[in-house]
Design a protein around this nucleic acid. Structure first.
Lengths: 132, 132
DNA sequence: ATCGTTGCAAAATATTTGCAGTTGA
DNA sequence: TCAACTGCAAATATTTTGCAACGAT
């Protein structure tokens, strides 16, 4: 087996409540500030630890972050699809899927005044599905 | 006017060449190592500076990074679209666009063995388009 | 000659972790 | 009880920056 037994601590509850109470996609530091209004002695480390756990349990989505927070670069400036694997964190191209999705994204977003974009899908890559 | 006059330095050339020579979406640190095989005295700071410039000129795409590298969190675990603005860096939901895009992404990716995903679009948000 | 760029080292920013005490189940 | 959890502080990791020397134009 794997997942350890979780305890329903007040700190974890409040972190989740505060996150659910906003639509601003806060950073950990921003969330720390709003949580502190209710739990003045909570530490930033605890906020980070609980966000990790809540992401693991699927209650929270972590955006724009990969392990270690390192940015990744792509030498191909043409818009194309990327898949960032949620297990191994590697990023790979999904060139084959591009044309149809690109058409749809483009035509859908045109009506929204968004003139440039690229897409990062997050899922589990083929390699990790097969290997474990 | 805005953009300063660029100089075509060897360091910048090699950073771009090495990035174009791989499909692995390397981090700045990884790229630094491969560039050093050719330019042993280059510094990590120079790699970062050139990646910034190359992104500005559109030769390179920076993935999974936002200003200051802070991760952002979302308390709504339902798959939905996000737009991260390339000017103001804010993340906003694009709920209205979801249904059609979600259908397409889902059916397209099913055939690729990807069982979970979310989408981050990067573009310019309505607020920045109107305000400057 | 000018000024954008570099290497280096230090600073700033963001996240993780060791530890001893606390607390939910 | 007892292991998951906490606050705190120190450590790591990632990125940016000041500065004097360098080099492309």
């Amino acid at each position: 087996m794997s997942a350890t037994q979780r305890r329903n601590t007040r700190q974890r509850q409040v972190v989740l409540e505060e996150l659910r109470a906003t639509r601003s996609h806060p950073t950990a530091g921003e969330l720390y500030h709003s949580v502190r209004d209710r739990l003045p002695r909570i530490s930033l480390g605890t906020v980070y630890r609980n966000l990790d756990i809540l992401q693991e349990t699927g209650d929270v989505i972590r955006l724009a972050g990969c392990v270690g927070q390192e940015a990744r670069y792509d030498g191909n400036p043409e818009p194309h699809l990327h898949l960032q694997c949620q297990r191994c964190q590697r990023v790979c191209d999904l060139d084959t899927v591009l044309p149809v999705l690109d058409d749809l994204v483009g035509s859908t977003l045109e009506g929204h005044g968004i003139d440039g974009y690229h897409v990062i899908l997050r899922g589990v890559c083929r390699h990790c599905r097969n290997g474990g």
